[in-house]
Every structure is written in C-alpha cells, then in structure tokens.
Nucleic acid binder design. Structure first.
Length: 210
DNA sequence: AGCCCGATTTGA
DNA sequence: CAAATCGGGCTA
C-alpha cells in the first residue's frame, strides 16, 4: 500500500487493514495471508499500549517514527507479535495484526508451525483439513510463526519487500466486508482502557482468533 | 544486578 | 488450568 494508506487515523487504519494481504517474500516463495483481525493501540491515552503516557524506550522507539513501518515485540519469551506503526511521527500508535486467513504458501506455513509433523511427513489427505488450516494463523503468535517473520523486521518499511502489505488481486477483493468491533483481548491490566472497542474483525470469518 | 511479568500458545 | 521462556523496563 502507498504512504497515504498508512497515514489514516489509527482506528480507521485498523479497519482498513482488514481484507488486505500480508506478503512475506522468502527463498521458498511468496507467503501470503489475508488480514481478518486487528487491534488498535493508541500510545499516550491508552493504558493498554506499550507506549502509554508517551513511554519511549528501545522497544517502543519505532512507534515514534513514521507510519507504515513494522513494530515487532517478543511476548512470553516465546512468541513474536507483528504490528503496523500508525499515526504521524512522534505519535506512538500501532495496530496489532491478530489473525490472518492463509492465502498462499500453505506448505511453508505448516512447516513453520508444525516442524515435527512436517518432518514425519503429513499424509496428503490430512494435510489441509479446515481444522489444520485455521491453526496456522488464527492468533498473533501463530501468524508470525507461520509467515516466518520476527524481530529482524523491526522498523522495516511495509511498503517494501520482503515484508509488505498490499491490496489483494481485484478478483479477490470483497466489496462488502462486514466488520465487527469489540474490546481487545488479554489486557486485564489496562483499567479504564479494558473496554475500549478497539478490536476489529471480519464478521463470521473462520480465521479470527479464539 | 536483580526482579517481575507479559497485546500467547499449548498440552495435561 | 498451569507451564514454557526471556528480554524489557523498573527499582536499587
């Protein structure tokens, strides 16, 4: 997407990202997922945000930069979360990508998510049950694992390969997306911000996180 | 230096 | 329902 797309206000961008493609160019091809769930985090005013109160540290630094760059952080010592930096320079806001619908590179995703199974060799008929397909990318930690993305893309410009956000091919654009919104997940510490309806998802989409 | 804990996932 | 697992951020 072009610069203007990322310059939208954070809540508008969180909605606008739904239906867009995340593309990771790897030496094993183009790994692609369609965004179906997002959460907005609005720095200074938002107790749930890492940048609450304008907190500026090595970790949050990228959020003070221009919109459209990638913010990655490690959670629970194990999982990487992928965010799109939003809002103007010096306004530390970002959007967490919570779930994707697998579009391309599904064998790669299975290998990343379930290396053990993959090594053992999946039987063809069970290689892509609806159940397994969902498990690939229906959560913020899962989708980064599936796409093979992490901190090495911290501050990467999402207008450029090898990690970018793009309009889907015209024949795959859903003109009539129905969007739902509600409170964000796992922010019990956030006091008054707990109930802000800043989580957005595509209504009835089976790949939304649980 | 030390301590605490998380924008999660998994399996008992 | 608790363990896994570790670096950031805060206190000293």
């Amino acid at each position: 997407m072009e610069s203007a797309f990322f310059e939208q206000p954070t809540l508008a961008l969180a909605e606008a990202l739904l239906g867009k493609y995340v593309i990771h160019e790897t030496n094993q091809g183009s790994i692609v997922g369609r965004i179906v769930e997002t959460e907005a985090y609005k720095g200074p005013e938002d107790r749930a945000a890492h940048s609450f109160g304008g907190k500026r540290t090595q970790r949050t630094e990228v959020m003070f930069g221009p919109p459209g760059h990638a913010y990655f952080f490690l959670i629970y010592g194990m999982y990487h979360c992928f965010n799109v930096v939003s809002a103007a320079t010096d306004k530390p806001e970002a959007i967490l990508i919570r779930a994707l619908e697998p579009i391309n590179g599904i064998p790669f995703m299975i290998q990343q998510r379930f290396p053990q199974k993959y090594a053992a060799g999946l039987r063809k008929e069970e290689s892509l049950t609806p159940r397994l397909k969902k498990q690939l990318t229906n959560g913020p930690g899962k989708l980064t694992q599936a796409l093979g993305i992490d901190q090495r893309y911290y501050d990467h410009d999402l207008k450029l390969p090898p990690l970018s956000i793009a309009e889907p091919p015209t024949q795959n654009i859903d003109e009539h997306l129905v969007i739902s919104r509600g409170p964000r997940i796992n922010i019990a510490y956030a006091q008054e911000a707990i109930h802000y309806p800043w989580r957005f998802w595509i209504k009835n989409n089976p790949y939304v996180s649980q």
